[in-house]
Design a protein around this nucleic acid. Structure first.
Lengths: 212, 212
DNA sequence: CGGACCATGTAAGCGGTTACATGATTCT
DNA sequence: AGAATCATGTAACCGCTTACATGGTCCG
C-alpha cells in the first residue's frame, strides 16, 4: 500500500560515473568524445568508462538537468554536442562530494586466488605473480606520470581547471590531486612488494620439496 | 546466419563467485546455508556474496555438473541440500587456478573523490578521511584475526581443509593462505596511512588560510 | 585517396545488490 | 512460548562489459 510518493534520489548505489563526468566538466565544457578521451588521460586512471557508457549517461544527465548539451557545427554536415555543467549539476556534485562514501565489500580475485595457490602449478603461480607485478608497475608508472604533469601544471585538463581559480587557490587544489595520485602510487607499490614476496615464497617452497 | 554452435564456456568475465564456492567446497561438503555462513567467516573477507546469489548459483553449478546436491533430512519434515564437488568441479577449479587473471580497470570512488576534495567542506573531507581510516582499521583487524586462526590452525574451515592433506603439505598450504591475508592487511595499512596523511594535509591547508 | 581520428551510438547480457518472503527447527 | 538460527529462495533493478555499427572529417 505504498502511496507512490518516493524519495526519488536517495542515493542509488554509487553512480560514480555520473560524478566522474561532472568532475571533468567542472574543468571545461567537453563533447562526449572529449570526455571519453579525457577518461583515458585523466580520471580514467581512477575511474574508467567506455564510450558506450559515456554517451547514454550524458543524455540521462541532460534529461536530469545536470548538464546542458550545446550542438556545435563540425565540418560541413556534421555536428557535435558540447556539454556544459549547469548550476544544478554543480550543486549535485558538491552534495556528492560532501556525502560520506559507502564502502562495498572486498572482492578481490587476485587475493582470492592467492589464498588457494596450493591448487595451481608452481609455474602458473609464478606467472600470475609476475603478471601482478607487471600490471601494478604499469599502473604505478602511469600514476607517477600523472603526478609529474599535475605538479608542474602541464596536464592539459588540470591546467584548464586551474585557470578558473585565483592563483592563491592553486596550491590547495594541486595538493589534493597529488594526494589522490600518491595514494594510488603507494598502493601499486604495495601490490608489487606483495607479489614479489609471493615469488620468493614459491621459490622457497620449491627448494624445500626439491630437498626431499 | 550463425549456425548456433558456439564455444559455450569461453571464459565469461570472471565468475569468481563460482570459483569462490568451489574453493570452499574443496574443504568439505556444505549446504547453501553453511556456504553463506562460511562467506562471512572465511572467503567472505576476500569475496563477499549474499544468500540470494549463492543459492541460485549452486543450482546452476549442479546443472553444469560441477557439484552434486545431496538431499539430507532435517528435523521431522525439513530437508536440506548438501553440495559436494565433483571431479568435473575440481578440474574446472584447477583450470581456473592455473589461468592468468584478467585485470580490470581501476575504479575507486575514494580516490576519485580525493582528487576533487577542493569541492568539499574541510569538515566533510575530514569526516570522510576518518571514515576511511575506520573502515580499513576494521578490515585490518578482521584480516589479522583470520591470520591468527590460520597460523595456529584454529580456523574451523581451514582445519577441515588441512585434514584432507598429509601433514607434510600443511606448511605449504598454510603459507599461501597467510600470504594472501598478509597482502590484504598490508593494503589496509597503506590505506590507513594514506588517509592519515590526508588529515594532516587538510590541517596544514586550514592553517595556511587561517593565517591569511 | 586512404588512413587516422572525430563523433555517437545500439543491443545483449551478466554479475551483483536490495528488498522482500516463507517456513521449519532448535534452544532456552 | 518465543527467540535465534537453519534453510531457501524470488523479483526488480542497476551499473557495467562486450561486441557491433555507422558515418563524417582532417591530413598527408
Amino acid at each position: 500500500m505504498s502511496i507512490g510518493i518516493s524519495q526519488a534520489t536517495v542515493q542509488n548505489r554509487t553512480m560514480s560515473l555520473r560524478y566522474a563526468l561532472l568532475a571533468l566538466l567542472t574543468a571545461q565544457p567537453m563533447t562526449g568524445y572529449d570526455l571519453a578521451k579525457a577518461f583515458h588521460i585523466s580520471v580514467g586512471h581512477v575511474w574508467y568508462a567506455p564510450d558506450s557508457q559515456i554517451y547514454p549517461e550524458l543524455r540521462r544527465m541532460e534529461a536530469a538537468g545536470l548538464v546542458d548539451g550545446v550542438a556545435l557545427p563540425w565540418g560541413d554536415k556534421g555536428t557535435k554536442t558540447e556539454y556544459h555543467v549547469t548550476d544544478a549539476g554543480i550543486s549535485e556534485f558538491v552534495d556528492w562530494m560532501n556525502l560520506p562514501l559507502r564502502y562495498t565489500r572486498e572482492r578481490d580475485p587476485a587475493h582470492l586466488k592467492a589464498a588457494y595457490f596450493e591448487w595451481a602449478d608452481p609455474d602458473a603461480v609464478r606467472e600470475q605473480l609476475r603478471a601482478h607485478v607487471a600490471h601494478y608497475e604499469d599502473q604505478r608508472r602511469q600514476w607517477l606520470e600523472q603526478l609529474e604533469s599535475i605538479r608542474d601544471h602541464t596536464h592539459p585538463i588540470f591546467a584548464k581547471r586551474l585557470e578558473r581559480y585565483p592563483s592563491s587557490e592553486w596550491p590547495r587544489i594541486t595538493a589534493f590531486k597529488m594526494f589522490a595520485y600518491e595514494g594510488l602510487a603507494a598502493r601499486a607499490e604495495q601490490e608489487i612488494a606483495w607479489a614479489q614476496r609471493g615469488l620468493r615464497l614459491v621459490d622457497e617452497l620449491a627448494g624445500e620439496s626439491a630437498a626431499d
